[in-house]
């Protein structure tokens, strides 16, 4: 009988463990793997990938009717929305402070504090807060949120190369986790982690958002950049070994396959099912290449993705 040797790689590095929450809140630890995603024969996935649900501080104007009907009136209140997200099985609540965008209401620190307070008291799950991705506004609202959430170890983002110092400083001061966002490029991702560490953020207080391309809209780029980041980390590069967050729902539901309600080819099939599978397959693709947190939008996608993660990691 052929004795097939099990081809085990001797990785020298491992993914950092990053904790969100705690201190009275529930906590979730992500990362900790010392092998490639879902491989069981050569290492351990210390923590299963987490599923976050996206919540907005303002009722979205242009969301698919399928999302609107799934969430109903909860869309009008971030607290109610977060509570429902917890009921639907979210491990983490991911709050986008969209209304701070100059074109979406240009709200400021006081509104951000109110939103943060509502969400933090509505649920005991770990929370991530991200700004509108406009530098000055991000700094304004995230510093405000940081203060309200002091000690509760929330995630704050997005730190980008050109705008990371203020957010990093507030993360350090209040004990939060910085989300480092870079545009699908391995060196930029590493570079930003280095910059954050240089200003004093602990490496285990950083999550990377390497930018998500949805299925059919750049997924293959995200897939390979994440795979390369993961391999670099396993080969011992401590500046690429931060766990990764992917904004799967946001990217997937913005594409025509999910957005268009009529006038699409018949071969695209049922609109709801297609939208759900689009989100699920985007999530699965990125989990396979190394995502540690996937941020989703539809409750049914959350259920499906969680069920499969359970089965793959048990």
């Amino acid at each position: 009988m052929a004795a097939v040797e099990v081809p085990v790689e001797k990785w020298t590095g491992k993914i950092r463990e990053v904790k969100l929450g705690g201190n009275g809140r529930k906590s979730v630890v992500v990362g900790g793997a010392n092998t490639l995603p879902f491989l069981c024969f050569e290492g351990v996935q210390a923590h299963r990938p987490a599923v976050a649900i996206e919540v907005r501080d303002k009722e979205p104007r242009d969301w698919s009717p399928h999302l609107v009907s799934a969430w109903g009136d909860a869309l009008k209140s971030p607290g109610a929305w977060a509570k429902k997200a917890a009921e639907y099985g979210a491990d983490i609540v991911y709050v986008r402070l969209a209304s701070a965008h100059p074109e979406e209401g240009n709200t400021g620190a006081s509104e951000a504090k109110k939103t943060a307070g509502e969400v933090l008291s509505a649920v005991d799950l770990p929370v991530i807060f991200v700004g509108p991705d406009v530098a000055e506004k991000d700094n304004e609202v995230l510093v405000a949120v940081s203060d309200v959430a002091k000690g509760q170890r929330v995630g704050l983002g997005n730190c980008v190369e050109k705008n990371h110092k203020t957010i990093a400083a507030t993360c350090i001061a209040d004990g939060h986790v910085a989300i480092a966002k870079t545009p699908i490029e391995i060196n930029l991702a590493k570079q930003l982690n280095i910059l954050l560490c240089d200003v004093g953020v602990q490496p285990d207080s950083i999550l990377m958002d390497p930018t998500t391309g949805a299925l059919g809209y750049g997924l293959e780029y995200s897939y390979s950049v994440m795979e390369r980041l993961r391999l670099a980390a396993l080969m011992g590069d401590g500046m690429t070994s931060m766990p990764m967050v992917c904004t799967v729902g946001e990217e997937s539901w913005r594409q025509k396959e999910s957005k268009a309600t009529s006038d699409v080819p018949k071969v695209w099939g049922d609109h709801l099912q297609r939208s759900l599978v689009w989100e699920e397959v985007t999530a699965m693709g990125l989990l396979t290449s190394g995502a540690d947190i996937v941020v989703l939008r539809h409750p049914r996608t959350v259920a499906a993705v969680k069920a499969v993660i359970d089965k793959m990691t048990k």
Binding site: E257, V267, Q273, V277, V281, V305
Partner: peptide, 28 residues
């Protein structure tokens, strides 16, 4: 479809599906 997605990425040569519907086939 999710397990099939994983098999597409790593490393199947032939995938046998039990279900067919356009809304699932298109994303796969």
């Amino acid at each position: 479809v999710l397990l099939a997605a994983q098999h597409i990425a790593k490393y199947a040569g032939v995938i046998v599906l039990e279900h067919f519907s356009p809304a699932v086939a298109y994303p796969l």
